[in-house]
Write a protein that binds this DNA or RNA. Structure first.
Lengths: 162, 162
DNA sequence: GAAAAGATGTTACTTTGTATCGTTTACTCT
DNA sequence: AGAGTAAACGATACAAAGTAACATCTTTTC
């Protein structure tokens, strides 16, 4: 099972997460000749500011405040960057929260699901063959051909359980 | 595995689905002393008009058109009815679509997931122990205590595969 | 360096969902 | 039956999430 739950739910040097994420993003975009522009990088950095999913308008607010530039960042700008980052697999959308979170292992194919803590909001991404197979099996028995999956589990993270 | 996929994806006498759903709803609400008012029943019937999930504003439109009463049904009215029906387990919300669908087996406990056809929109509800266990296992390995789950699978239904 | 493609700025708008408050309807208890 | 209470509904206004369209600017390509 591939997961960042060990990190996401526990005290750690988060600067390393951010740096690693930016680094991987640059590499990936470079390899793909996709343009990781300053705006896109800022949106990615903003989302990676924590392990909690961030809404699009929270990103707008964050960027409008911290940005050195004078003018307010507008929704279409942020949504466009989000679209790019989702397309590149650098972030994921959490449907149940209308929010976005950084992908800890972009590039590798992974059929992922999310563990969302209802207390602290911290969210870990997991990829597990058993879950994957169970879903494909169940769908198969209904003669249903699986395309994409949305799997979001809400509960209590190890840190909040104490 | 509990599922209505045999029905949802194939030609059938849908009036029976609707009748059965209304019948069960009345029984359940009766037993719980919950009030299935005319508005709530109409919303439920509107949602059960097909096996495709319906958005809240689609329900508003449907009801405003077909309603014998003169005035337009307003969003808060519909959202309140939706809330009631969700609370009673008579309908489910599909986060990935912002839409609602009738529950084919309310009352029984079931940990459900959904098979959404990307072509015809028809959606079946399934409940499968293997999926359930796989998810709980995976979460358990992360020391995460599962509360509620959102599992929505998009793909192609048997009918559309031909 | 010109043309084309891609990214951003800006305005206005759509869709989805709620807070609030006043009124009406239904239930409860004597 | 009738007063009191709780639940449901009507209506207005608004918040939150997301997008269409078009002008402008920047980067790439040849």
């Amino acid at each position: 099972m591939l997961t960042n739950s060990r990190i996401a739910y526990h005290r750690h040097d988060h600067k390393r997460c951010i740096n690693a994420a930016l680094c991987r993003a640059r590499e990936l975009c470079d390899a793909r000749k996709a343009r990781l522009t300053p705006i896109r990088e800022t949106v990615l950095k903003t989302i990676w500011a924590s392990h909690r999913p961030l809404g699009a308008y929270e990103i707008v607010d964050q960027m409008s405040q911290s940005e050195t530039s004078a003018h307010r960042v507008l929704p279409p700008t942020v949504y466009r960057a989000i679209q790019f980052l989702v397309d590149q697999g650098l972030i994921h959308r959490l449907s149940s929260l209308n929010a976005y979170i950084g992908c800890p292992f972009p590039g590798n194919y992974h059929s992922d699901f999310f563990l969302i803590c209802e207390q602290c909001g911290s969210t870990a991404e997991c990829s597990d063959d058993q879950v994957d197979h169970a879903v494909i099996n169940a769908a198969g028995r209904a003669n249903f051909q699986v395309g994409s999956k949305v799997i979001e589990i809400v509960g209590i993270c190890p840190e909040c359980r104490g």
